[in-house]
């Protein structure tokens, strides 16, 4: 079982969330087809700490940024995407 500490709802089972995959930097406004498809498809698929997007589907319905270790499934940090990182 994977527990995610939602900043709004507290610790919840990963079943409640929808996994959005690793965070990939969005290309600029006019990236051209190749850069756009690269953004859509190509993944780092890291074995280690990975920044990911999760959506709390059956909870607060907020998009979250989660730092998870992809080998141990340990979670280091969770924050709402709208939260200021500075």
């Amino acid at each position: 079982m994977l527990l995610i500490l939602c900043p709004h709802c507290g610790p919840r089972n990963a079943d409640e969330f929808s996994f959005g995959g690793e965070l990939v930097p969005r290309p600029g406004p006019d990236p051209g087809p190749e850069a756009w498809r690269n953004y859509l498809y190509t993944k780092e698929n890291l074995a280690g700490w990975e920044g990911e997007q999760w959506f709390h589907l059956s909870g607060c319905r907020r998009f979250l940024e989660v730092e998870r270790h992809t080998i141990t499934n340990e979670i280091r940090s969770v924050r709402d995407v709208t939260e200021d990182t500075a």
Binding site: M1, D15, F19, G21, T70, I71, N73
Partner: peptide
């Protein structure tokens, strides 16, 4: 499984 991982552990779910 519903999320990516390199862990080969099974789950009760």
């Amino acid at each position: 499984d519903p999320f990516s991982s390199y862990s080969a552990r099974g789950s009760l779910e």
